[in-house]
């Protein structure tokens, strides 16, 4: 088991990123062959808008998956945050305070999941399936079925404006990605995520609080959902209970395609970012030739399965190959 895990981790580290890069190049070639409009920097930068909210949520989900848990309530967390944002905007609260309050709301909702999973020892899929419905319901209760459409310009700018040609939302995504990459690889906290995900039992003896680390990752995911809410309202000009509903599948797809081990302990931010880029290129390229959303879903599903299956099959094949060679060596040794 542990050697199989080690093997998978090993393959995941380098092979996956390389595979994703090749797939991105390929998808880009296909897209530019299909549509002469694809290969324009402004077009490509603009297309990131469709993926950036899911991308940010996928980054938020990463630490949770690395400790071996899952949070499928992130989109509902985002929806509730947009309601808080809407209410505070209505009350003419200054924008910096709105930003802080939105992030804090995300943190609290994330922490609720984290405490139940980390300290309560409850299964995260069940807990967050519950809060997926509960947070959205609460968002409708508090925000009403109409939602909100008036936000101060400064808040609106986060999701809607650009600095030069680059969308602010894309810069925020990049900032979170870089911060996460640094924290995951270079800090004790980051290493404790992987340690908890790999072997909870061993970590427990080493004095790290497994419950604390798990709860912390849910808090991080929650804050990122709050950031997602700030981007969402600018992007779509509205907030309410139905914000981002249904996008959790895209988020989980990105995480799986990014090569994060769903059982925890392995996965890199760089691969996750590449997976999000790949999803964006596919979505954008197929959108430009007006392929139906069903076709897009099918293609993304196929790419996901192929990217999991092909390395797995080849890994198995070459392992058998090595075993055969070893067997032959042993036979030779004995015959000598």
């Amino acid at each position: 088991m542990s050697s199989a895990r080690a093997h998978k981790v090993y393959l995941g580290r380098r092979g996956w990123s390389l595979t994703l890069i090749v797939l991105i190049v390929l998808a880009s070639i296909c897209a530019s062959l299909a549509s002469p409009l694809f290969l324009h920097p402004s077009q490509i930068l603009n297309s990131t808008g469709a993926m950036v909210v899911s991308g940010v949520l996928a980054l938020g989900l990463a630490p949770i998956v690395i400790v071996g848990e899952i949070d499928i309530s992130l989109t509902s967390n985002l929806a509730f945050c947009t309601v808080v944002l809407g209410l505070l905007s209505q009350a003419h609260v200054p924008p910096p305070l709105i930003v802080l309050a939105t992030l804090a709301t995300g943190l609290v909702l994330g922490a609720f999941n984290g405490v139940l999973v980390g300290y309560g020892g409850l299964p995260s899929l069940a807990v967050t399936l519950g809060t997926l419905g509960a947070y959205q319901g609460a968002a409708f209760l508090v925000g009403g079925t109409n939602g909100f459409t008036d936000f101060p310009g400064a808040i609106y700018a986060i999701g809607a404006d650009t600095i030069g040609p680059v969308p602010i939302s894309l810069l925020l995504f990049a900032a979170v990605a870089i911060a996460f990459a640094v924290v995951f690889r270079l800090t004790t906290i980051g290493r404790s995520f992987y340690a908890v995900g790999r072997a909870s039992e061993a970590v427990r003896h080493s004095g790290i609080s497994v419950a604390g680390v798990k709860a912390a990752t849910f808090c991080i995911g929650g804050v990122v959902a709050g950031l997602g809410a700030l981007i969402f309202v600018g992007q779509y000009g509205s907030g309410g209970g139905d914000s981002a509903s249904g996008t959790i599948l895209t988020v989980v797809t990105a995480v799986a395609l990014g090569g994060l081990d769903i059982y925890g302990g392995a996965g890199r931010v760089s691969s996750l970012v590449l997976a999000i880029v790949l999803l964006d290129v596919i979505q954008n390229g197929m959108g430009l030739v007006n392929a139906s959303t069903t076709t897009q879903t099918i293609v993304i599903g196929l790419v996901l399965i192929m990217s999991l299956l092909v390395p797995e099959l080849l890994g198995r094949w070459s392992r058998e190959h090595v075993d055969q060679q070893r067997g032959l060596l042993q036979v030779l040794r004995f015959s000598r």
């Binding site: 393959l11 092979g15 595979t19 090749v22 790419v303």
Partner: peptide, 16 residues
Amino acid sequence: VTRRHFLAVGASVAAV
């Protein structure tokens, strides 16, 4: 392992 990676990538390409 390195060779395997290239095979993996090659096969993904061939599939896509």
